[in-house]
């Protein structure tokens, strides 16, 4: 489903939304989201920069992004992983997200990403402490970061 269709879908259940300051201590890993090179980001986040390339990970993204402020990127894998990651090599902060998978969670995540310039995107799946990786290149037509 396209984002616009989703936004316009009137039958969608209205969700309860609350706004209040969090009382919980932040678990956000600040050291994973630093302004560093992609190699340093791999080392900081994964502890290694050597991975097996895997054909069992698919990254779906447009080869040319017309709007670099919201590039739709989808990672999916047939590896029964417990953690998913997405990195954009040329972004100032390369790690886009990390996501832990529990229970019936499938190794699939789609989201909209800002891109500073044309770059490789790396999708990483962790399976029992081992990392598997796939990459795609996305060209950015107009900068909008």
């Amino acid at each position: 489903m396209k984002r616009r269709t989703f936004l316009e879908r009137s039958s969608m259940a209205a969700a309860l939304v609350l706004l209040r300051p969090s009382t919980l201590a932040a678990a956000w890993s600040e050291n994973h989201f630093q302004q560093v090179s992609i190699e340093k980001a791999f080392l900081d986040v994964l502890g290694t920069k050597d991975f097996n390339r895997s054909s069992r990970i698919t990254i779906a993204a447009p080869p040319v992004a017309s709007d670099s402020s919201a590039v739709p990127v989808e990672i999916s894998s047939t590896i029964k992983g417990d953690q998913l990651y997405l990195f954009v090599e040329k972004n100032i902060t390369p790690l886009v997200f990390s996501c832990a998978l529990h229970g019936g969670a499938l190794p699939f995540l789609s989201l909209t990403v800002k891109m500073k310039e044309s770059s490789l995107l790396y999708g990483v799946v962790r399976e029992g402490g081992k990392y598997h990786m796939a990459s795609v290149h996305v060209d950015v037509a107009v900068q909008a970061c």
């Binding site: 919201a70 529990h102 969670a105 989201l111 800002k114």
Partner: peptide, 18 residues
Amino acid sequence: LFELQLGPSVSKDPFLQF
């Protein structure tokens, strides 16, 4: 089910699918 950490590279009005 899912636990996420997100950085500044996510777009405005994030649209996520699981």
